[in-house]
Simulated assay, not measured.
Amino acid sequence: MGCGLYLYGIFPAPGPQGLALQGLDKQPVQTQVVDEFTFLYSEAKQKRYLASRRNLLGHEKVLEDAMQQGYRTLLPLQFGLVVEDWDAVSEQLIVPHKTRLQALFEQLEGKREVGVKIFWDTNAELQLMLEENPELKAKRDSLQGQVLSMDLTIQIGQELERSLEQRKEAIINRFREELNDLAFEVVENELLSEASIYNAAYLIPWDAEATFGDRVESLDREFEQRLRIRYNNFTAPFNFAQLDRV
């Protein structure tokens, strides 16, 4: 017995035709036109979906598979959205937000989201920084095997921290210089871990991805082995399909 409708995303009508996709709970993915919007959905077998890795990836895969089949203009919906029926969709989403939904479709037409995440090894970067700065290295070395005042210890520690932060900002600015001019919009997201120094999403023209990817590879070579870069060249535009952005 179903628990309602699980919604994945919205396309401009008429939307995808003849998709053969499998959604959550191994349910077939279907389309439903409501007003001038086409919803991608499957029958919900649960009232509430746990945000597990498996479910999250399943949600994203449905959207990406639909886009890969040529249906590119898509507003992805947040994970776990279950509604009772299509009347509820009309009353809660379309009627109050129709104008903004239309504006989002216009903004996303002919565009795609890509993402860049940058990680570094803090200790390795610190050692490299000290090798390049003998004066700072001498100060750091003075912390070892000597009795220093608390004020001096704090001062040296703060200087090391500032220098490391400056190196981080220099790397981030280098990526901004190379990549931001290819994007209509850039969203800089929260960092994922202590090793993460940059996490950004870019809204770029569909046909600019090859150029964008080449620039990411060039930056990877430029920084040699200092960075670990994760480049996602195909994803639903979650960062740019938000009603509060229009």
Rank of each mutant, 00 (worst) to 15 (best):
G110Y: 03
G110N: 02
G110W: 03
G110F: 03
K111H: 14
R112F: 02
R112L: 08
E113Y: 06
V114M: 08
V114W: 00
V114H: 04
V114A: 07
G115A: 15
G115D: 10
V116A: 03
V116M: 10
V116N: 00
K117F: 07
K117L: 13
K117V: 14
I118Y: 01
I118G: 01
F119V: 09
W120V: 14
D121F: 11
T122A: 13
A124N: 09
A124V: 05
A124G: 09
A124R: 13
A124S: 08
E125P: 08
E125G: 09
L126R: 08
L126W: 02
L126V: 03
L126T: 03
Q127N: 14
Q127F: 10
Q127Y: 08
Q127A: 15
L128A: 14
L128W: 02
L128M: 12
M129W: 03
M129H: 02
M129K: 04
L130N: 03
E132I: 04
E132G: 06
E132T: 06
E132P: 02
N133Y: 01
N133K: 09
N133A: 11
N133R: 12
P134Y: 04
P134A: 06
P134H: 05
P134C: 07
E135K: 15
E135H: 15
L136G: 01
L136V: 05
L136N: 01
K137N: 01
A138S: 06
A138H: 03
K139Y: 02
R140V: 13
D141F: 07
D141A: 11
D141Y: 07
S142H: 03
S142P: 02
Q144I: 15
Q144D: 14
Q144W: 14
Q146E: 07
Q146T: 10
Q146V: 07
V147R: 13
S149H: 11
S149M: 09
S149C: 09
M150I: 08
M150C: 02
M150R: 13
D151Y: 13
L152S: 11
L152M: 12
